[in-house]
């Protein structure tokens, strides 16, 4: 093969950029002497399982989370188009704290009390395991920034994504790590929107009605009428003065109902992933 084209080496370059990011993270400057930091690089079918989890977290058409929906569409599109793409996972163990600095940021007067609380209460939230030592977490942040800078130095697009990190955590891709942030690396070439990570696939996903509904719900005060009477009216239509719409507060029971359903579906994908890993390992053994 006398002439190599992008098709021959693009994925290799992306993997190299991801490896450079991993090296930068592992060698990053630290505030503490004791952060346990690990990196992994995943691609191909493994990303497929992460994408499936994000689809569940995002909900139908992003009903549960618009942010995660955009990340889901991005990964789905890359896989469908067979784009050269890898994910650099950077994980950290953020408790117990070996520092003995007694800094107080965690809410406990001493590291010893924090560690006792951590031992008794360690469990998962939406994005990772807590409680976490704030200084170990800051070291984790420094490593993330250095990884991104190393990838950026190669002119390879990348984006730090907590969504894929949470998916990796749930799938057990980095056992022992409390927090994982994913760094999506690649593709090399610029997309038709000149970049890949601005969620271009969100285009056409929502009607203007839906967008205004989100805007009014999020920034009610921006659409508020004269509030001097203590009952602020929201200008939710052009004819708002004929159809008064009152701002207020109320319970959100659907949020409580949806969470167990999401966790159940996520558990199913995790089991499938474990089975896939076992089958792959058995296949490797056969060969």
């Amino acid at each position: 093969m006398p002439i190599l084209t992008e098709k021959d080496y693009t994925f290799e370059l992306i993997l190299q950029a991801a490896k450079d990011g991993a090296a930068a993270a592992l060698g990053a400057p630290r505030l503490t002497p004791s952060l346990e930091l690990e990196t992994r690089i995943v691609h191909g079918e493994e990303i497929g399982f992460m994408v499936r989890l994000l689809e569940i977290f995002a909900g139908p058409e992003g009903a549960y989370s618009q942010f995660i929906y955009g990340d889901y569409l991005m990964g789905k599109r890359f896989l469908e188009q067979n784009q050269p793409y890898a994910i650099l996972l950077i994980g950290a163990k953020t408790s117990p704290s070996p520092l003995a600095w007694d800094c107080g940021a965690c809410g406990f007067p001493t590291c010893g009390e924090f560690n006792r609380f951590a031992n008794e209460n360690k469990s998962a939230g939406m994005f990772g395991y807590g409680p976490a030592c704030n200084w170990l977490m800051m070291d984790f942040g420094i490593a993330l920034a250095q990884a991104s800078a190393a990838i950026y130095a190669k002119n390879v697009d990348s984006r730090q994504q907590g969504s894929y990190g949470a998916a990796a955590l749930i799938l057990g891709m980095m056992p022992g790590m409390d927090a994982i942030i994913a760094n999506s690396v690649g593709p090399l070439n610029r997309g038709i929107f000149q970049e890949w990570y601005n969620r271009p696939e969100m285009k056409g996903s929502f009607s203007m009605d839906k967008i205004y509904e989100m805007l009014i719900a999020t920034f009610a005060y921006h659409f508020g009428a004269f509030s001097g009477d203590g009952i602020p009216m929201i200008k939710n239509t052009d004819d708002w003065f004929w159809e008064p719409f009152k701002a207020g507060t109320g319970p959100m029971p659907e949020a409580v109902e949806i969470l167990p359903q999401i966790l159940e579906k996520a558990g199913e994908v995790t089991l499938e992933y474990e089975q896939w890993l076992q089958e792959r390992a058995a296949g490797d053994g056969d060969s």
């Binding site: 965690c106 704030n134 977490m137 800051m138 942040g141 420094i142 250095q146």
Partner: peptide, 26 residues
């Protein structure tokens, strides 16, 4: 004043702080 940094604090905000420090270090 009993501790240097009175908590508890929002940990992901402090992760952001770490990322900012990392960027400055770059």
């Amino acid at each position: 004043a009993k501790v240097p940094f009175h908590g508890p604090m929002c940990v992901p905000r402090n992760l952001d702080l770490g990322i900012a420090v990392g960027s400055a270090m770059v």
